[in-house]
């Protein structure tokens, strides 16, 4: 993973239905760069189905462009949900 190929995006606060629209728009804006994306999720305070769907759809879109999505230091909240859904291996988690 070369640094110049990668953008870092910090998500702070809620990743839920209330913020779904904002988050979708933000992520979508990074699709045009044609780069790998590191999402820093260490400061996510809320995470629900809407948030999960956006993450999955984001990955799907990046996959289509043969780019990778890395989740960095997801907060415990997110880890627990991914574990619950046995999706711990679905995303690439880095620390």
């Amino acid at each position: 993973m070369r640094v110049e190929d990668t953008i870092e995006v910090y998500v702070v606060g809620e990743m839920n239905i209330y913020k779904a629209e904002d988050n979708k728009k933000t992520f979508q804006s990074y699709l045009t760069n044609n780069k790998n994306v590191i999402l820093d999720l260490s400061n996510v305070t809320e995470f629900d189905t809407a948030g999960l769907q956006i993450l999955m759809a984001f990955k799907k879109s990046l996959d289509a462009k043969h780019k990778n999505l890395y989740l960095r230091a997801p907060s415990e909240l997110i880890i627990n949900i991914l574990k619950l859904l046995k999706m711990d291996n679905y995303f690439e988690v880095i620390n």
């Binding site: 979508q28 809407a50 759809a57 879109s61």
Partner: peptide, 11 residues
């Protein structure tokens, strides 16, 4: 059924 992000209806 999940579409790519561009086509996603967030609700």
């Amino acid at each position: 059924k999940l579409p790519p992000l561009e086509e996603l209806n967030h609700e």
